[in-house]
Design a protein around this nucleic acid. Structure first.
Lengths: 162, 162
DNA sequence: CTAAGTGCAAAAAGTTTGCATTCCG
DNA sequence: CGGAATGCAAACTTTTTGCACTTAG
């Protein structure tokens, strides 16, 4: 029994509509994978999701998770993300008009989400400048997070003391 | 004889310094690969660069291009980019304080570069808000370019006429 | 029934790496 | 000379696909 917020609810509807339109079927595996995905933290990989799914049903195959995630992406309720470490990650779509972006720590791989409406405005303006019709965007700042900076400083102090 | 602008000149120096510091050697292959890279359009793939390099010296191996590009990235004179189509692309670094970002057409794969100083400012502000030390960023708008929109409209008109 | 979905295993597609050989400094 | 660099091929990693079997509608 997945605990569904208003947002989740809306996404489920979107998915149902998409599947109906395309004549796709609701199977036990798909329901399980989708439910598990909805309960998972953002930026999950296929591998991770598969592990979670197998906790409920060990017989589910990698390919099914792979294909279901593709389906979610096509239907627009999930986004594929590649943060440059070679794996594809998935996250639930945002609401119609809100988007968030990411800060990615290059030391501990932490992913922090942020949001700023001004960025959206400027992006829109740029797109117009080029007659470009934006479908989605990717905005990622790579660097060192606060806690890794601290660790780094601590290490420096210890090194000196020795 | 590569035609070097002021920017290229500076990047070459940076590379030379980096190699000296690390005790790396200047080989015939590296010189050829680097020169070819400097003359290539932005966002080139290893495969493409290899083809261009082999036009001058067919014996150069994939791994050498791969490792040289890694070297350029480490030295800071080139950037690795992944635009989500599974291949890694490389482009020459920008000057110290100017950065550009990308518009990527999901139909014709065209890559358009843009630049807006306001984005830099806001990013900096966001990073500070999270105590984050930015090393580099990625800002890409995916969508349909002007010319593909036209094609699309044309097709729609023809379809209707038929 | 029958077309869509599943699971498995094999195929692709790219990226990395080990190693014998070559060659820069 | 001696350690770096190269080229080849093999190893890896992750994504994608073919196919025989199962199942939702």
């Amino acid at each position: 029994m997945p605990m569904d917020g208003a947002k989740t609810e809306r996404l489920r509807e979107t998915l149902a509509k998409y599947m109906a339109k395309k004549g796709l079927r609701s199977t036990e595996q798909r329901r399980l994978i989708v439910d598990t995905f909805f309960e998972s933290p953002a930026h999950i990989t296929i591998e991770e999701l598969l592990a979670n799914v197998r906790a409920s049903d060990p017989k589910v195959g990698y390919a099914t998770v792979y294909r279901t995630l593709k389906l979610l992406a096509e239907s627009g309720i999930a986004h594929e993300r590649r943060f440059g470490d070679g794996v594809t990650r998935y996250e639930l779509a945002d609401d119609e008009d809100e988007h968030h972006d990411h800060l990615i720590c290059t030391e501990c791989q932490a992913i922090i989400e942020f949001e700023d409406p001004r960025l959206e405005e400027i992006e829109q303006e740029i797109a117009e400048r080029y007659g470009f019709e934006v479908q989605w965007h990717k905005h990622e700042l790579y660097g060192v997070c606060a806690s890794c900076q601290e660790k780094r400083n601590k290490k420096a102090r210890n090194g000196r003391r020795k």
